[in-house]
């Protein structure tokens, strides 16, 4: 299973993604520079975290016009699995592959710590290995993770079971202290209508080994692996 990890100028989680993928022998990750125009024959694409193009103008606003994004767009439109983590989520929103936008955290602070998120649906190729309702402890590290969308879009996301992860308290509540950045509906991750493009602010690739303090992110890679082994090559 060939997996492209896109490196933009300013990406800084591309190696984390690569190493997390490498833990699973079935994945063959490869870095793809943002200036490349083709993905060749890959089975999945990761847009990693970081500060692509310095986050100038708006996070992800310039990265979405990187030459590789045409290929990513075509890959996603054809149904290929795409995962955007943190800055990658911001790029996916800016590019229109996912609805909404990520605003400045309502605390105005860069938040870098573990959070608890609840798996809201296992009906995606990224979460099938998790039980719905499971609470994961996974790090966040962002200044602009405050998910915003208009009321109509939020209703659509909720109605179509497209909210994949929600920030919760350690016991799974939505009350005080659950939401680290002001996100609407406590949204931490969503999929597109076709359910093949995932964007999430927390970092599953930083929660894949006991040494990292949590292995709760492994399920995402296991889900993707199960999905890719079930589709004909």
């Amino acid at each position: 299973m060939k997996v492209a990890v896109i490196t933009f100028p300013g990406s800084n989680c591309d190696h984390d993604c690569y190493k997390a993928l490498k833990l699973f022998p079935e994945f063959e990750p490869r870095f793809v520079w943002h200036a490349a125009s083709t993905l060749d024959s890959v089975d999945a694409v990761f847009l990693p975290g970081g500060f692509a193009h310095g986050d100038y103008l708006r996070a992800g606003a310039i990265a979405r016009f990187s030459p590789i994004m045409d290929a990513v767009h075509a890959f996603a439109t054809a149904g290929g699995p795409v995962v955007g983590i943190c800055n990658g989520f911001q790029v996916l929103c800016e590019s229109g592959l996912l609805p909404g936008a990520l605003l400045r955290n309502d605390t105005l602070r860069f938040r870098s710590h573990d959070v608890h998120i609840r798996v809201e649906t296992s009906r995606t190729r990224f979460t099938s290995a998790y039980e719905k309702g499971r609470i994961l402890r996974i790090p966040i590290a962002h200044g602009e993770g405050n998910y915003h969308a208009d009321a109509e879009t939020l209703a659509e996301l909720e109605g179509e079971d497209r909210v994949v992860f929600r920030y919760v308290t350690p016991t799974g509540g939505l009350g005080e202290g659950s939401n680290p950045n002001g996100s609407a509906h406590n949204i931490a991750g969503i999929v597109n209508a076709a359910r093949n493009v995932l964007g999430m602010m927390p970092h599953p690739e930083r929660a894949v080994e006991p040494l990292l303090g949590s292995t709760d992110g492994r399920g995402l890679f296991e889900s993707l692996s199960a999905h890719l082994s079930s589709v004909p090559a």
């Binding site: 103008l57 929103c93 909404g100 936008a101 605003l103 915003h148 969308a149 208009d150």
Partner: peptide
């Protein structure tokens, strides 16, 4: 196209 995000 670039300078403003129509969502926000």
């Amino acid at each position: 196209k670039l300078l403003a995000n129509p969502v926000t």
